[in-house]
């Protein structure tokens, strides 16, 4: 039986992006069925422009060098890889309405849904994570 991993991404910094996409791609590479629900600041992680230059936390800007040295893949690369591996991206409709965002503001291949869309997926999940 396939394992299922359900992730909520609710923060929009670069650290958050790595936490979310690394776990998601690792789970998908281990043949898990994976969905991520992006809500509030988490929407930054799949925003067409914002995802290209996510901020480091205040006072942690010096870690930019560490990312370069560790040869960590860039976030757009991880997004592409996650999608190739079949990770589903669900953008929260309510947050989009609040922030005035449209589906076209996000990377291709996402779906838009509400809390119930995610819960339907998550109720059968073996692993549930919130970032």
């Amino acid at each position: 039986m396939t394992n299922r991993t359900a992730i909520i991404a609710s923060n929009g910094g670069i650290f958050d992006a790595y936490k979310v996409f690394n776990i998601a791609t690792a789970a998908a590479a281990s043949e898990h069925e994976v969905a991520i629900f992006f809500t509030f600041e988490g929407l930054n992680l799949i925003h067409r422009e914002a995802s290209q230059q996510l901020p480091l936390p205040e006072g942690k800007e010096h870690f930019a060098e560490g990312f370069r040295q560790a040869n960590v893949p860039a976030i757009p690369e991880l997004i592409g890889m996650a999608q190739e591996l079949g990770v589903q991206f669900i953008a929260c409709q309510m947050t989009m309405d609040v922030m005035g965002l449209a589906e076209t503001d996000f990377v291709d291949g996402i779906s838009v849904g509400g809390a119930v869309t995610f819960l339907e997926f998550a109720k059968e999940a073996d692993v549930t994570l919130t970032f």
């Binding site: 690792a26 281990s30 040869n71 893949p73 890889m81």
Partner: peptide, 14 residues
């Protein structure tokens, strides 16, 4: 070689 997490796992899977 030279790749960091999660790339070795993803590439191994592929």
């Amino acid at each position: 070689i030279g790749l960091s997490c999660p790339m070795p796992i993803v590439k191994t899977r592929n």
